[in-house]
Nucleic acid binder design. Structure first.
Ligand SMILES: [Mn+2]
Ligand SMILES: [Mn+2]
Ligand SMILES: [Mn+2]
Ligand SMILES: [Mn+2]
Lengths: 218, 218
DNA sequence: CATTTAATTTAGACAAAACGAAAAATAAAT
DNA sequence: ATTTATTTTTCGTTTTGTCTAAATTAAATG
């Protein structure tokens, strides 16, 4: 399994190709910042290896083997991100780039020991769930902040957009995972929200609210 | 700097090419388990980049830039080895293979933080010195156990052969770095030694003794 | 010094991964 | 039902790293 093959499987998974949904060549090319012709080449190779189902002019979807491989890469990626934050004091906007490299290290013992060292975390620094060793996903009951009703309360548990600029913006505005949030008001005009977060009242644009995951209080 | 280029620089350094000594194509090929013709190709490329001096039919030696690059890879390799042993309970015969991969991760912050986490170790699990960030080597006053005079005492500080079989042999015979050693007797016939190690008397073949580094007591 | 031997380089080929241009297939519009 | 537009594939080429076989150079031998 080459690094390139692993990256393709991961990309296809993130585009929803794990649910036997067909992902188009163009979508994969865009996600991976490569060209459609390159994707076609790889689709054939991965199909040969039994990791994807590929139908010409239709797209690809992951086979069961493909899903398991993708999950194992994602598991490594997210565990390394936790390691970087918890053990080496990286900030949450610095970890992705390094994890892109570390996820390809081949050693089952290594990642199991990292998992143990971190006390088996369930979520990465951006709130994304970490698949278990046997490829199970623990989903969480969460919704976008922008979809919460007025007066409801919750805890901020994840980001949808985990780009560096967005993460830095959140830092600057003291918005962090784990913070409690209450929706005070919605502005019809621009869909912005007035919220109370950890005691402080603030206004949040729709853009921001639609990129924050919240776990609703029971 | 590609992974392959880094591996060549490291190999040349280990063969002594850091002291402007010319290393032959064949020697590099053997060290890297590749073919001489491949080495020639790479010699040209590294020469283009100013990392080695290459004279056709003579061999290569590292330039100053080449030495610094090699040392930075070796630094990463050895720090990762310490990390694996100290933080993840790897044994000293398991670490090399994984470190071969980890040494190529590109992130200055990452390796500096690992260094800090480990409290700036000076030696790796096999007793090899770890170059400093600015490429300095701290040599140690050590000699081979086979070259120690009768009745002298010392501490076992390193292995010359760090192959898996040798390391496992040492484990099995309770020979570990840090152990105190006293030479009791030398057998002229086969050059074997009688030693006292941590209280126990034992016999050691010349083969073994010539692969153990000892720091002589003042 | 001529000849043999060994080491080294060159040349040609291959595999992996990527790209652009152009052809082919599909989808959308008229 | 055609035409047009878009998507996808095919084909030829590039880069990186490797290999085998042939040619060249250096070293050793007599
Ligand atoms: Mn990430
Ligand atoms: Mn990756
Ligand atoms: Mn090693
Ligand atoms: Mn390496």
């Amino acid at each position: 399994m080459t690094r390139s093959e692993e990256n393709y499987l991961k990309a296809i998974f993130h585009l929803g190709g794990g649910d036997s949904k067909s992902i188009t060549t163009n979508a994969i090319a865009e996600q991976m910042e490569t060209k459609p012709s390159s994707v076609t080449d790889m689709a054939k190779k991965l199909s040969e290896k039994g990791l994807v189902d590929y139908v010409r002019y239709q797209g690809v979807s992951l086979t069961e083997a493909g899903v398991q491989t993708a999950l194992s890469i994602i598991r490594k990626h997210r565990l390394w991100e936790v390691f970087l934050v918890k053990k080496l004091d990286f900030t949450w906007d610095e970890v992705h780039e390094v994890a892109e490299q570390l996820e390809h290290i081949k050693s089952e013992k290594l990642i199991d020991k990292i998992d143990e060292l971190l006390d088996f975390p369930k979520y990465d620094p951006h709130g994304d769930p970490i698949p278990t060793k046997d490829g199970k996903f623990q989903e969480r009951d969460e919704k976008l902040l922008s979809e919460m009703p007025i007066n409801s309360k919750g805890v901020c548990v994840g980001v949808k957009d985990s780009s560096v600029p967005f993460l830095k913006f959140l830092d600057k505005n003291n918005i962090a995972l784990g913070n409690t949030i209450q929706i005070l008001d919605k502005e019809d005009f621009d869909n912005s929200l007035r919220i109370r977060m950890e005691g402080n009242e603030m206004r949040i644009s729709h853009q921001i609210a639609s990129n924050l995951f919240v776990k609703k209080n029971s």
